[in-house]
């Protein structure tokens, strides 16, 4: 049996070190998965949800006990390694699609108010145009007719006085 020479020992040490580094990096990633989710992680999902008990307040800002429980559940699910989509799907299954800040049926949710607004605006626009046009023409014709009448004595005297001073 011959002793391992220093020339062979050096590459071996290098490979062992490399192997240890790989193992350490893998153990770090496992630790990262098992880490406690931060408040930011929880709130990133919570702000996309609304609790039916307090409908107008997003979950990340709601101070009620119900919402605190929901945030705890999100934290627990994140710690279990659940993804954002999985968590949101769970909440929809449990409490209905109305908990989502971004409704799933986008076309119906957004198109109906926009169409209603556009038609309302069109109606108002046409209505105003119909009111303004006759009013303007009436005002113009009445001004033309009223010109000689509006020159009363006081204005005539004023104009005469001003002409004299010139």
């Amino acid at each position: 049996m011959s002793l391992i020479s220093s020339k062979k020992l050096l590459p071996m040490a290098f490979f062992v070190s490399l192997l240890l580094l790989v193992l350490l990096s893998q153990s770090n990633s496992v630790l990262a998965q098992g880490e406690e989710p931060t408040d930011d992680d929880v709130n990133r999902i919570a702000k996309q949800l609304y609790c039916p008990v307090c409908e107008s307040t997003p979950l990340d800002a709601c101070p009620t006990e119900a919402c605190r429980q929901w945030r705890d559940l999100i934290r627990q699910m994140l710690a279990e390694g659940k993804s954002e989509d999985e968590i949101k799907q769970y909440f929809v299954a449990q409490y209905g699609a109305r908990v989502l800040s971004d409704p799933p049926n986008r076309l119906a949710s957004y198109a109906v108010p926009v169409i209603a607004f556009l038609f309302g605006a069109l109606l108002l626009f046409r209505g105003f145009r119909m009111w303004i046009k006759p009013a303007e023409s009436e005002a113009v014709s009445s001004m033309d007719e009223a010109k000689p009448v509006q020159q009363d004595e006081y204005i005539q005297k004023m104009e005469e006085e001003l002409n004299k001073r010139k």
């Binding site: 119900a66 429980q69 705890d72 559940l73």
Partner: peptide
């Protein structure tokens, strides 16, 4: 028969 309906709650709680 009594039935409890748990409203907007989390199962652990």
């Amino acid at each position: 028969i009594f039935i409890g309906v748990d409203y907007v709650d989390t199962e652990p709680d």
